[in-house]
Write a protein that binds this DNA or RNA. Structure first.
Length: 281
DNA sequence: CTCCTGTCCTGCCGGC
DNA sequence: TGCCGGCAGGACAGGA
């Protein structure tokens, strides 16, 4: 579930708790999530200082003083929960990794579906790694422009909705914000990627930036139980225009009388897409 | 090469 | 009330 805004929110929530602290103990409560935990992970982390956190696409990076980077992906159901005082903390059912930091604080990685991932590499390994080297541009970077997006879509025959989900075209957009951005830009999710003009790509880029920034401002969104790092529920879901709103009138059609101005749900490559057939062309 | 389908896993919701 | 099928935000392998 966590898309770019949720991961960014988690990063911001963890920063004040983790930055500058020593990682005193690392507790693994099973051998793997989606992939095995790195061999000897606790040994390689314990005793080292957390220099800073960063984010790329939907990945969270913890930069350590031994030049290693702890890489965390939250998958669909992953949460990072800050426990101020670990004294007497009883791990919950899906607490898989517990980072003990400073004096008695814990950061718990809880992930019921176990689609999450934990990796450990240095900068050079990461740059070359097949999970990171092919990633597309960060959507919030200035370098992500309409012309850049149009160029990346130019030889793609897949529908634009699926192209937005492709992390090699643009990194960090997931199923919710893909639908939302297309709605804001007035572009049909079914439109062929290579048919997107520079003008439309410009609109779409602005829509992506706009919706991601608003979601970050709102503290990340969630459909079910995603929580910010401090345990508060994100609330951007109340602002979705189309996502999970099948059958409702399209808010972007300004209550037009056209009977088609109702949000539709369709499936594209097995993923739900929500859109308004009358204002998204 | 490109693109789509299936798969990993648990939880939850709606229908019967 | 209880059971069961379908679906859920992601990423990637494998096959057409």
């Amino acid at each position: 579930m966590p898309e770019l805004p949720e991961v960014e929110t988690v990063k911001r929530g963890l920063e004040p708790v983790m930055t500058g602290q020593i990682l005193s103990r690392v507790e693994l409560r099973r051998a793997d999530l989606r992939i095995p935990f790195p061999a000897n992970l606790p040994k390689l982390l314990e005793g080292h200082k957390i220099l800073r956190l960063s984010r790329r696409a939907k990945y969270l990076f913890v930069h350590l003083s031994n030049d290693k980077i702890l890489i965390i992906h939250l998958g669909m159901s992953g949460k990072m929960i800050i426990i101020k005082n670990m004294q007497g903390y009883e791990p919950l059912k899906h607490d898989h990794m517990i980072l003990h930091i400073g004096k008695g604080t814990g950061v718990v990685f809880n992930d019921p579906r176990r689609f999450g991932m934990v990796m450990l590499m240095d900068e050079a390994e990461m740059t070359a790694h097949s999970s990171f080297a092919p990633l597309g541009p960060e959507p919030l970077a200035d370098e992500f422009t309409g012309e850049v997006l149009r160029e990346r879509l130019a030889r793609k025959s897949m529908p634009i909705k699926l192209a937005l989900l492709d992390q090699h075209i643009v990194a960090g957009v997931g199923n919710i914000y893909a639908s939302e951005a297309l709605s804001i830009a007035g572009i049909s999710p079914l439109r062929k990627s290579s048919d997107i003009s520079t003008a439309k790509a410009e609109k779409l880029v602005n829509a992506i930036k706009d919706v991601l920034l608003r979601a970050i401002e709102a503290g990340g969104s969630s459909l079910k139980d995603h929580r910010q790092a401090d345990g508060n529920l994100g609330y951007f879901q109340h602002s979705f225009s189309v996502y999970d709103r099948a059958g409702e009138p399209c808010p972007r059609c300004k209550g037009g009388v056209k009977k088609k101005s109702v949000i539709q749900k369709i499936m594209q490559s097995g993923r739900a897409t929500y859109y308004c057939p009358s204002c998204q062309k």
